[in-house]
Amino acid sequence: MIAGDFLSRPWVRALALIISFAVLVALLWQSDERLPPLEAESLRGPSEPDGFVVNGLYRSFDEAGQLTTLISSPRIEQFEASEVAIMTSPDATLIDKNTGSPWKLTAASGTFHQQKNLVELEGNVIVTRQISDDRQGTLETEQLTLDNESRTVFTEAPVTLTDGRTITQATGMTAWIDDRILELKSQVIGLYEPATSNSR
């Protein structure tokens, strides 16, 4: 009966509750110390991005502050550990340093390697450039790499080039953007279409 009276006192119940809480905190603290720290990658899985950007825009400038490259994408997934960004439907504009004329690039997907400053484009890659007022040059391939440091684009895949008068097919290509030099590597086939006359 004395023990019952003792346990029914409010301060004893409060003290017992505090002790129980302290023991629970101590147990949780010790269990945390035994577990290895969980990294973001182990929580989300290696194939999931650290973050993503909607309607992202990437700009690159030369030493004089002039815009040289502009790349946009409706969704960019970022992987911090590998310093890689994966772009959906990238749309790029490369500015010719000498003439200021743009090269337009589109693809189904693209991977930006931040350390190397490389963009790998894949799937229905199309590059267009205005040759003259009435002619446009087009390059089509399934894979193309843009090296933003050397200002080159290159591929080992088959390519098709058209300029309104000729169609050229080859396997492998390197192009120097600012020098407007194009090197086709192998299996080059060209077809020339003469201008048609409306006179009879």
Score class of each variant (00 low, 15 high):
Asn124Leu: 07
Ser197Met: 03
Arg59Val: 09
Glu83Ile: 10
Ala40Thr: 10
Ile18Phe: 14
Leu118Val: 11
Phe6Thr: 02
Asp96Lys: 05
Leu144Gln: 00
Lys104Leu: 14
Thr168Gln: 01
Asn98Cys: 08
Arg9Thr: 03
Arg129Met: 05
Ser8Leu: 14
Ala26Gln: 07
Thr152Gln: 08
Phe154Val: 01
Gly56Asn: 03
Gly137Lys: 09
Val12Ser: 08
Gln30Met: 09
Thr174His: 04
Glu120Pro: 09
Pro158Asp: 01
Leu144Val: 00
Thr160Met: 08
Ala157Gly: 06
Ser150Asp: 13
Leu146Asp: 01
Thr141Asp: 00
Thr138Ala: 09
Met1Ile: 14
Val188Arg: 00
Ile126Pro: 02
Pro194Ala: 01
Ala64Met: 15
Phe79Glu: 07
Leu139Phe: 04
Ile76Gln: 11
Glu39Thr: 13
Ile167Ser: 11
Pro74Ile: 09
Val159Asp: 02
Arg165Glu: 14
Gln169Val: 03
Asp32Arg: 14
Ala16Glu: 08
Asp133Ser: 13
Asp163Gly: 02
Thr162Asp: 06
Ser82Cys: 08
Gly45Leu: 00
Thr174Ile: 09
Val153His: 01
Val23Gly: 04
Val84Gly: 07
Leu94Glu: 03
Ser150Pro: 05
Val54Cys: 06
Pro158Gly: 03
Asp147Gly: 03
Glu156Pro: 02
Arg135Glu: 15
Thr196Gly: 04
Arg151Asn: 05
Gly51Asp: 05
Thr162Gly: 13
Leu146Ala: 09
Val153Tyr: 02
Leu28Ala: 08
Thr111Ile: 14
Gln78Phe: 15
Asp178Gly: 01
Lys104Phe: 15
Asp178Ile: 01
Asp179Gly: 07
Ile76Val: 15
Leu43His: 04
Met1Asn: 13
Ala3Asn: 09
Thr166Val: 11
Leu57Ser: 10
Glu41Pro: 05
Asn117Lys: 14
Val125Lys: 00
Asn124Glu: 08
